[in-house]
Simulated assay, not measured.
Amino acid sequence: MTARELDAAGVTDPRLRRAYAVCRALNARHGRTYFLATRLLPPARRPAVHALYGFARWADEIVDDTGGARTVEERARALAALEEDLAEALRAGPRADTPAPVLRALAHTASVHRIDHRLFHDFMASMRMDLDVTDYPRYADLYAYMHGSAAVIGLQMLPVLGTVGPREEAEPHAAALGVAFQLTNFLRDVGEDLDRGRVYLPAEVLDRHRVDRDLLRWCRDTRRGHPRVRAALREVAEHTHSVYRDARPGIALLDPVARPCIRTAFVLYGGILERIEAAGYAVLHRRVAVPVRRRAAVALDGLARLTAARLRRRIAPGRPAPAAARPVPGRNALP
């Protein structure tokens, strides 16, 4: 499938093809839900999504260092080096001497789809926060972090997906969808984040329900729930549902052939939230997931929707692709 995707995207340079293959492997290994949804995009648009996800995953792994091999100072230096290399790659565009395959693919994607470079720098700012910020007093503080860690991902995706009207109309919904996905992850991964010394649930919510880190650790260590913890998680879940509602209208603003991909991600991530609720918010000692059968059913529905969208496009010959999704010609080779 990698070759087919790259052929469809017009990526012919062998070095670029290898770089995109690295990003695709990262997506397949770490983002099961996201990778499944990406398979529902037209092949020509998948490499760019793999590049965006691959870069985000790479930076996230530096910050988290789940193996514990590097100190905070070492991670800070590695992140600073990545940010410097990122700035140079975006400035120079895709080049053979770009220091890492992921950056090579990212620079090419940013160039072809004219993605605002500020979105990548905002992302790196949030990654830096993860090195020393361990909790967030209010939703306002958490949203400042999520702008760079989640909202900008949705905004980076828009030029790749394409829109049926002005991109500006879709941007608030795309940003909201990125935030909804991350809030869902925060709820699902409370226990894992606690192990890393971080709590992404706003302190203003925890304080309302008299929940502190000691109580969270007690639930994790004893594998038992607690009514105050359940109440706090329920409040965050209700807030997350409201963000999904804000995001949903944006799906209809996308290029029709991109909608099945995003709708599938929307349904599957929403399904994770529903599983958290069905489990009574018992997430501190286990990781909930959408059952394979449900994932398959949603994917099949997405495939049917994609087939219908492609058929409708064929029936309307001569109809141009949405302007936001048109790649810039002549940028598929490395200088």
Rank of each mutant, 00 (worst) to 15 (best):
Arg118Thr: 14
Ala56Gly: 11
Ala316Met: 04
Tyr136Leu: 03
Ala76Leu: 06
Arg223Asn: 08
Ala265Leu: 12
Leu311Glu: 13
Arg167Gly: 14
Arg77Lys: 08
Arg188Leu: 07
Val328Met: 11
Asp122Glu: 15
Asp97Ile: 01
Thr66Leu: 10
Arg217Gly: 02
Leu306Val: 05
Asp65Asn: 04
Ala21Cys: 11
Arg167Ile: 11
Gly54Ile: 09
Thr163Val: 12
Gly54Tyr: 05
Asp212Leu: 04
Asn27Pro: 00
Ala48Trp: 06
Pro227His: 09
Arg208Asp: 04
Leu52Asn: 04
Ala107Ile: 02
Gln156Phe: 02
Pro260Gln: 12
Ala304Gln: 09
Ala92His: 06
Asp221Ala: 13
Tyr136Val: 03
Ala232Trp: 00
Pro94Lys: 09
Pro94Cys: 07
Ile272Leu: 15
Arg313Lys: 14
Glu168Ile: 15
Leu161Cys: 09
Leu215His: 06
Asp255Tyr: 10
Ala8Arg: 05
Glu204His: 01
Ala247Ser: 06
Arg275Asp: 13
Ser149Met: 02
Ile315Arg: 15
His50Val: 02
Arg39Trp: 11
Ser111Ala: 15
Leu177Gly: 06
His30Ile: 04
Ala279Ser: 15
Ala175Asp: 09
Gly148Lys: 06
Glu83Ala: 11
Pro260Ser: 09
Pro137Lys: 06
Arg4Leu: 12
Arg128Ile: 03
Ala19Asp: 13
Tyr53Asn: 05
Arg91Asn: 05
His173Gln: 08
Thr264Trp: 04
Asp221Thr: 10
Pro317Gly: 12
Ser242Pro: 02
Leu106Arg: 04
Val112Ala: 13
Val328Arg: 15
Phe186Asp: 04
Ala105Val: 06
Arg310Asn: 03
Val292Thr: 15
Ala176His: 09
Ala48Phe: 06
Arg263Ala: 13
Ala8Thr: 07
Glu204Tyr: 08
Val22Leu: 14
Ala323Gly: 14
Ala150His: 00
Glu168His: 14
Arg286Pro: 05
Cys23Val: 13
Leu215Lys: 07
Gly154Trp: 01
Pro322Trp: 05
Ala105Ile: 10
Val229Ser: 01
Asp60Leu: 03
Met146Thr: 14
Leu306Pro: 01
Met1Val: 08
Gly154Ile: 00
Tyr143Asn: 15
Pro159Thr: 05
Val243Met: 07
Arg32Lys: 14
Val133Ala: 09
Arg228Trp: 02
Arg287Ala: 05
Thr222Lys: 09
Ala289Tyr: 01
Ser126Ala: 15
Glu235Asn: 08
Trp58Pro: 00
Arg208Trp: 02
Asn27Asp: 14
Val164Gln: 12
Arg228His: 14
Glu83Gln: 12
Leu187Trp: 04
Arg15Leu: 15
Ala333Asp: 13
Ala333Cys: 11
Val229Lys: 00
Tyr145Trp: 07
Gly148His: 05
Leu194Ser: 11
Ala324Cys: 10
Cys219Tyr: 01
Asp221Met: 05
